[in-house]
Design a protein around this nucleic acid. Structure first.
Length: 879
RNA sequence: GGGGGCUUAGCUCAGCUGGUUCAGAGCAUCUGCCUUACAAGCAGAGGGUCAUAGGUUCGAAUCCUAUAGCCCCCACCA
């Protein structure tokens, strides 16, 4: 067998992905094993793969692969969200390009276009995820408008209506004039804005006096129905009850009073426009005022405005300002800072608008969902989001669930011409219910009209954990009973309210059990300058390009290595490069190790090195497995990966392989070789969830494998026995000694090629004898001797209580040697003093834990021994 | 306006219930090496009064209080 010199990701990735699929390793069905389930947050059908997805799905894949290797029945369910408003906007725009206006289409015609679009573009994103190595059970791919899913949503609507949670009402909603639909509070993004505050005179009906009003929205003046002041405001007290003339339209309106008015703000007098402001609407209700909606649904001035009819709201603002000026009622303009709400989807300015919508009352439903998180039944990583969650759930408001769109689950409500309605699962049931309602058996479907609106996308997404497993329609089916609750939800904190909170809510309502045990919140992916990645900035690299350039394993490494849970990830291509370097390193280590057998270098039965390196690395590995396991338990994946990285690069390659690597033609022995292959196998398995392709490749090349022996299903290395600290401690003395010699070479400019002698002064000669062949090889030493006294004409260094002398021809300054020793002595003495102080402190003795106390005792002993050694050396030097 | 978080080497970050093996890692920098696995590499090195000021303590990066700066979330101030 010939091992290629370089690792070629692309062909190898395609090869193994195909084989994994072929072997069905991603598939899962209920059996006697413990399940481990992850439900993929379904990307929008309109979505394009970006770095955020890469991070998110890499994390999910790491978790799934780990648990699969640990023997659980791992199931990762992928899917796509129909993304009602986002998709509809896209389809409308596309049709517009083709010269088709949505308004000219029937509902069915439009939906046909939408489905066509979905079938063409939807799911591209999932195919792209395959390139990344995602090990989803693709047979389970679910779309939120699949037949069964659709029915589940309708069923839940019916159920919540029957239970009295869902109701229809006229309320102030957030209106998106571009999409011409209501949106929920969560879909409104508030941004700071510089606005103009207009001060306007409202003249009293009788007399020359006026009251001045401050407003940022003069175009809504035609909707004014009153002026409101604080009853305690001395300036206006005498005017309450009088009437003023509204500018522009010259209507007479009353001056009323309410304690809610802020005397300090603006002029202290508020123009009341119930149709266009939440607060004003409340005032309007309280004082029974008229509602005049001055806008049309697309944000133009309406007939009711009576002025600037048909003009866009922003144009109208300017026109209104101009006219106020020409009427002589504009007092002044002032620049102010305020918040303006934008639609999350269309980015148009949200208009508070009074309209009739469907709402879901969340207060009662939220109670158990709040409790589940506060009690850690659902555990948040990081925990800081618990507070955010609690605050929202404690102040939860009714959820506006209807949207004036066509793409989505159509609201299952059927109306009579008189406005009466029935809520039903389908037309047949609607008709039956209707007949009962009006006691008329001759009623036909044509007497009924279904609600035109669809449901908020999130009203379907919130059922994801249940509906994907058909748990709504068949609550007792085998699948949902087996897989629910899922284990970990991996998502961004930006949708904690939209989605996470609501899934917990619906899960507890419909399964009486939380939908997932853990929620892992990822951070936002930013560029290396800390800017959020966005299309506009063009700072988001194309994932597929990155994979092409570095390989999927390297990209996975890059996004994982610096992304602790909940913290933003500052992504830099360099991280992928580091990943690629790592892959290359592993590949070359593999070539070295495997080469020994393939090139016939295995010449001996037993180890020249007394198996010391094997003993050392096996303990190093034990130690690392515990560390890595702890990190994974806490979802510290980047830390875990870093640990594996160091274990492989530093400990395995730089140290272990260098130790056992045969110099000259001395050859390798069978025992060490076998041990090394076994180590390599464990390392590769350990790394597999993070870098699946490279590891699968090496897995198959390390040994002959049977047909079903794949790394993807190999047992994950478990932390079992603890590492032997004594062995690790002794070995580190050896390694430090080698480093010490190398250091002397460096600072004295001695080539690594020039062999040196080494004198060791130690009370543990045995140890150094055992390691002698390794020390001589790694530090390029000709001969090691043991001494009892100072060696002159040599550079020295100390490790713990051992002193090492390297005789060199380069000039040695005794003074420098003396200073070195005396500095170390001072430091050690100081160190001992602090230890002694602690041990002399009764409160410390009383309060410290026994292990802390033991450590201090050990420190004391070590320091004392070292001081004796240093003092002795120093004395000899001065003689 | 309310709430939460952050401030540790040039950069990105680890540092749990306070105890000189905690002052760390990776990247970057510097020095020397094309040593037959790897220059996508090897061997070394330098670099931080742990934001500031107090306090608690025998002892604080770690706990408390203020201050400054940055970030996020929530909120109907016209």
């Amino acid at each position: 067998m010939e091992i290629p010199k370089t690792y070629d990701p692309e062909t190898i990735e395609n090869k193994w992905y195909a084989q994994w699929l072929d072997k069905g390793y991603f598939k899962s069905s209920p059996d006697e094993r413990t399940p481990f389930t992850i439900l993929m947050p379904p990307p929008n059908v309109t979505g394009v793969l970006h770095m955020g997805h890469a991070l998110n799905h890499t994390i999910q894949d790491v978790l799934i692969r780990q648990e699969r290797m640990k023997g659980k029945n791992a199931m990762w369910l992928p899917g796509i969200d129909h993304a009602s408003i986002a998709t509809e906007a896209k389809v409308v725009a596309l049709l517009k390009e083709q010269g088709i206006n949505k308004n000219d289409l029937t509902r069915d015609e439009f939906l046909a276009h939408a489905w066509e679009w979905k079938n063409k573009y939807g799911g591209i994103i999932l195919d792209q995820l395959k390139k990344l190595g995602a090990s989803c059970d693709w047979d389970r791919t679910t779309f939120t408008m699949d037949n069964q899913y659709y029915k589940s949503v309708i069923m839940v609507f019916n159920d919540l209506y029957d239970k009295g949670f869902i109701y229809k009402g006229i309320q102030m909603v957030n209106w998106d004039p571009l999409a011409k639909t209501a949106v929920s509070d969560e879909e409104v993004i508030f941004k700071d804005a510089n606005s103009v505050l207009y001060y306007v005179k409202y003249y009293l009906t009788d007399g020359e006096d006026y009251i001045s009003i401050a407003t940022t929205r003069p175009e809504t003046i035609p909707g004014d129905v009153a002026i409101c002041v604080n009853p305690n405001d001395e300036r206006y007290k005498h005017l309450i009850g009088k009437t003023v003339i509204v500018p522009l339209i010259h209507r007479e309106v009353p001056i009323i009073s309410d304690l809610g008015i802020d005397i300090e703000f603006g002029t202290g007098a508020l123009k009341v426009t119930p149709a266009h402001d939440r607060y004003d609407f409340e005032l309007g209700k309280k004082y029974n005022l008229q509602v005049i909606d001055v806008f049309t649904s697309d944000g133009k001035m309406s007939e009711k405005a009576g002025i600037f009819v048909g003009e866009d709201r922003f144009k109208a603002r300017k026109l209104a300002a101009d006219q106020l000026e020409s009427e002589g009622v504009l007092i002044k303009k002032e620049q102010i800072q305020n918040n303006i709400g934008y639609s999350e989807r269309t980015n148009s300015v949200i208009e508070p608008k009074l309209s009739e919508q469907w709402f879901c009352n969340m207060q009662k439903l939220a109670i158990p969902a709040l409790e589940a998180v506060m009690s850690d039944e659902v555990e948040f990583y990081p925990a800081k989001y618990k507070n955010v969650y609690r605050h929202w759930m404690e102040n939860i408001r009714d959820w506006c669930i209807s949207r004036q769109l066509w793409w989505g689950q159509r609201i299952p409500v059927w109306y009579f011409s008189n406005g009466q309605y029935v809520v039903a699962l389908n037309e047949e049931e609607a008709l039956a219910k209707a007949k009962l309602l009006v006691e008329n058996d001759n009623l036909t479907l044509s007497d009924l009209r279904q609600d035109d609106d669809v449901l908020d996308t999130w009203f379907s997404s919130w059922l994801w954990p249940i509906a994907t497993l058909n748990g709504i329609l068949e609550p007792n089916n085998k699948e949902i009973n087996y897989y629910y609750p899922s284990d970990t939800l991996v998502t961004g904190p930006d949708i904690i309210f939209f989605w996470v909170a609501r899934m917990i809510t619906s899960g507890l309502e419909y399964r009486k059990e939380e939908p997932f045990y853990d929620v892992y919140f990822t951070g936002i992916v930013r560029d290396s300058k800390g800017r959020k990645m966005s299309k506009q900035l063009g700072n988001s690299p194309d994932l597929l390009d990155l994979i092409k350039k570095f390989g999927a394993d390297s990209v996975r490494f890059g996004v994982l290595v610096s992304s602790p849970a909940g913290n933003d990830l500052l992504f830099d291509e360099k991280l992928c490069e580091q990943g690629a370097n790592f892959a290359n390193k592993i590949w070359n280590a593999f070539r070295l190790v495997r080469g020994w057998e393939l090139n016939g270098a295995i010449k001996h039965k037993s180890s020249r090195f007394n198996l010391k390196p094997v003993e050392w690395f096996s303990n190093k590995l034990k130690h690392a497995l515990h560390e890595i396991d702890d990190y994974i338990e806490e979802y510290k994946l980047s830390e875990a990966l870093t640990s594996i990285y160091k274990l492989i690069w530093d400990d395995f390659c730089s140290t272990y392989l260098e130790m056992i690597k045969p110099e000259n033609d001395l050859g390798m022995d069978q025992v060490t070789y076998e041990a090394t292959i076994t180590f390599f196998e464990k390392l590769v398995a350990l790394l597999h969830p993070f870098m699946p392709f490279l590891t699968e490749e090496i897995w198959h090349l390390l040994r002959e494998r049977t047909d079903d022996d794949f790394c993807i299903i190999a047992p994950y290395p478990k932390p079992e026995e603890k590492a032997d600290q004594i062995i690790l401690g002794k070995s580190s003395r050896i390694i430090e000694a080698i480093t010490g010699v190398r250091n002397i070479r460096n600072e004295s400019n001695i080539s690594p090629k020039m062999a040196l002698d080494l004198f060791i002064r130690s009370d543990d000669e045995m140890l150094f004898r055992q390691w002698e062949p390794i020390i001589t090889k790694m530090a390029n030493i000709t001969n090691i001797d043991f001494v009892k006294i100072q060696v002159t004409g040599a550079k020295s260094f100390t490790v713990k209580t051992d002193t090492f002398y390297v005789p060199i021809t380069v000039e040695i300054d005794p003074e420098t040697e003396r200073i070195k020793l005396s500095d170390e002595l001072d430091y050690t003495k100081g160190f001992l003093r602090t230890v002694m102080a602690k041990l002399a402190n009764q409160r410390f003795i009383d309060n410290a834990r026994p292990d802390v106390l033991d450590k201090e005792m050990q420190k004391k002993a070590d320091a004392e021994a070292r001081i004796i050694m240093l003092e002795q050396s120093l004395k000899e030097l001065q003689q």
